Simulated assay, not measured.
Amino acid sequence: MNSEAAPQSAGEARDVRVRLPYHLRHLARLDSETVVRVAGPVTQRSVLDALEERYPALGGTIRDHTTGRRRAYLRFFACEEDISHEPPDDELPGPVVSGAEPFMVVGAMAGG
């Protein structure tokens, strides 16, 4: 994943597009995707930190309050690739960092 990341300077802030599933958009009172400002490296962790800071109602809904781990039945995508199991501090791909592509939180399906 790092090979595709755009180089960033330490204090540089980026606007990152984020798409959420309906239930989380409803909780955050959003009609569509949102943009969050991320200072420093753009990683899963930094994007989710910025998202929870801007929309406090989302705190604990995407990541567990105690462990910080992704909640079951949620997946993370960047550039149409599932990055749910990538380390949370790896930089996201350049198109996400530049705002050309969104960071997506997607509700997973289960059942039989």
Results as ranks from 00 to 15, higher is better:
5 A>P: 02
65 H>I: 05
35 V>Y: 08
70 R>L: 10
33 E>L: 06
46 S>Y: 10
10 A>W: 06
102 P>R: 09
47 V>Q: 09
80 E>D: 14
43 T>W: 11
84 S>Q: 13
90 D>G: 02
19 R>L: 06
102 P>I: 04
70 R>E: 03
71 R>I: 00
56 P>S: 05
21 P>C: 04
47 V>W: 08
37 R>Y: 06
2 N>C: 01
6 A>W: 04
66 T>R: 15
62 I>D: 01
50 A>I: 11
62 I>R: 09
56 P>W: 12
26 H>T: 09
71 R>H: 01
103 F>Q: 03
53 E>I: 07
45 R>M: 01
100 A>W: 06
6 A>C: 01
24 L>D: 08
49 D>I: 07
105 V>E: 05
36 V>E: 02
56 P>Y: 13
94 G>M: 05
104 M>Q: 15
62 I>K: 08
71 R>Q: 10
5 A>T: 06
102 P>Y: 07
1 M>N: 05
71 R>K: 13
86 E>P: 00
58 L>F: 10
29 R>Y: 02
56 P>D: 08
53 E>W: 08
73 Y>P: 00
39 A>Q: 15
76 F>L: 11
91 E>Q: 15
78 A>H: 09
108 A>G: 08
17 R>A: 00
76 F>Q: 06
47 V>N: 11
91 E>Y: 04
76 F>T: 06
95 P>S: 10
39 A>F: 04
3 S>W: 08
48 L>N: 03
71 R>T: 00
65 H>A: 13
77 F>K: 11
101 E>T: 02
82 D>A: 05
66 T>H: 12
74 L>V: 07
62 I>Q: 05
48 L>K: 12
56 P>K: 12
22 Y>T: 15
112 G>A: 10
32 S>L: 05
83 I>S: 02
3 S>K: 12
75 R>M: 07
20 L>K: 14
33 E>A: 04
59 G>S: 14
40 G>K: 13
73 Y>M: 13
108 A>W: 14
34 T>Q: 05
9 S>L: 13
1 M>E: 06
48 L>G: 01
1 M>K: 10
69 R>E: 06
2 N>G: 12
76 F>M: 13
58 L>N: 08
100 A>D: 13
109 M>D: 03
57 A>N: 14
3 S>Y: 09
77 F>V: 05
38 V>F: 12
42 V>F: 06
47 V>Y: 07
97 V>Q: 14
12 E>W: 05
12 E>Q: 15
46 S>C: 04
72 A>S: 12
99 G>N: 03
104 M>T: 14
20 L>N: 12
82 D>R: 09
46 S>M: 08
101 E>Y: 03
63 R>D: 00
79 C>N: 15
25 R>P: 01
75 R>Q: 10
66 T>M: 05
106 V>L: 08
4 E>N: 15
73 Y>G: 04
11 G>I: 06
65 H>P: 07
99 G>K: 04
101 E>N: 04
102 P>S: 11
88 P>V: 12
100 A>K: 14
68 G>I: 00
89 D>S: 07
97 V>F: 03
100 A>E: 12
96 V>T: 08
103 F>W: 03
74 L>A: 04
34 T>H: 11
17 R>N: 03
21 P>R: 11
89 D>N: 11
26 H>L: 03
107 G>E: 14
31 D>M: 03
96 V>M: 03
19 R>G: 00
101 E>D: 10
42 V>A: 03
3 S>F: 07
11 G>A: 12
22 Y>G: 09
100 A>L: 05
26 H>E: 13
